[in-house]
Computed example of a mutant assay.
Amino acid sequence: MEKIKGFTGFKKNGRLIGIVAAVLAVLLLSGCGTGMSEINAQTPGFFNHYVVFPLSYLLVHIAGWFGGSFGMAVIILTLAVRLLLLPLMMRQARSQQAMKRVMNSMQPELDELKRKYEKKKDRDSQQKMQQEMMALYKKHNFNPLNIGCLPLLIQLPILSGMYTAIRFTPDLAAHSFGWFQLGKPDPILAVLVACIYLLQSKVSQMSMTPEQRKQFAIMGYLSPIMMAVFSFSAPAAMPLYWTVSGTFLLLQTLLFRKLYPSDTAEKSTDVKLNDAKSKVKTVKG
């Protein structure tokens, strides 16, 4: 249950923007290859020429370094792109934790504001409540619209370009890697992708409160299911890409939890330490 109406709107808008961004990503990924059988220097389109083709070019040359292994090329290029985006994601993680700390510090004042106008439902009172809320935001230098969409907008073209480059790079589909052919679906990879994204979702929710976990429970299962459905029908090169990218995201999430621990985790640690101290005193007594 949310603390205050204005705050509820902010959180709902944040989730809505995330959902819209995900839908746009799917549309972009599915639309990039419309009417295109392969990517080369003559393929028309700004995105194809300046994003997709350079990535396809790198795929071919990296494969040459590994004896023509396009599977290794997909792995190496995926890791390179993720490492390139890592500083941006670290900056986003720091900003999110800073925003959470501000939200926690102003929560008592928000609760007081809610109690003040709890029984005042008329229009004038609601307008005054919104004005006081905006003043409170200004006091704490808190911007409710700053929900971290910019990193998503920056990385989306790069990751979409990776998807399209892998899908339409000539000769990639004819090669094999491990037990599967890159151009044909592989059920084992599909299950692996689903497991990785499910685990990544669970790890991401570890820093949330119990209420937040309930809110995001369905989304936590929806993403792995969607990835599995796509992977069962997609050429194996795509699940390979998603497997490497998902594993990197999982490790990245664990790293960020170490570097930028949430207040919830810190409070949980303090409670455990206090309980341990109490037990020690009880034993000594």
Rank of each mutant, 00 (worst) to 15 (best):
E2W: 12
K3V: 14
T8G: 07
F10A: 13
K11M: 11
K12P: 00
A22G: 15
V26A: 12
L27M: 14
L29M: 13
C32D: 09
G33S: 14
G35T: 02
A41Y: 10
T43V: 09
G45I: 04
F47M: 08
H49G: 07
H49M: 12
V52M: 08
S56N: 05
Y57Q: 10
H61T: 12
H61I: 10
I62E: 01
A63L: 12
G64P: 07
V74W: 03
I76D: 00
T78F: 06
L79Y: 02
A80G: 07
R82Q: 11
L84N: 01
M90H: 05
Q92M: 10
S95V: 02
S95D: 06
Q96C: 05
N104M: 09
N104R: 05
N104K: 13
S105K: 11
S105A: 14
S105E: 13
M106R: 05
M106Y: 10
K116A: 04
E118W: 11
E118M: 10
K120T: 08
K121A: 11
D122L: 02
D122G: 00
R123G: 04
D124M: 06
D124V: 08
K128N: 09
Q130M: 13
M133G: 08
M134T: 09
L136N: 09
K138Q: 15
F142K: 02
P144K: 10
L145F: 15
I147C: 01
G148P: 02
C149E: 07
P151E: 05
P157D: 04
I158H: 01
S160T: 14
P170I: 03
A173Q: 10
A173C: 00
S176M: 03
W179D: 03
Q181E: 04
K184T: 13
K184M: 10
P187A: 13
I188R: 07
L189M: 13
A190T: 00
C195L: 15
Y197F: 11
V203R: 08
M206N: 04
A217W: 14
A217K: 15
P224S: 11
F230T: 11
S231T: 07
P235E: 07
P235T: 02
G246Y: 03
G246T: 06
L249K: 10
L250G: 03
L250H: 02
L251P: 03
T253R: 01
L254F: 02
R257L: 09
K258Q: 13
K258F: 14
K267D: 13
T269A: 15
D270T: 11
V271P: 02
S278T: 09
K279I: 13
V283P: 01
G285F: 11
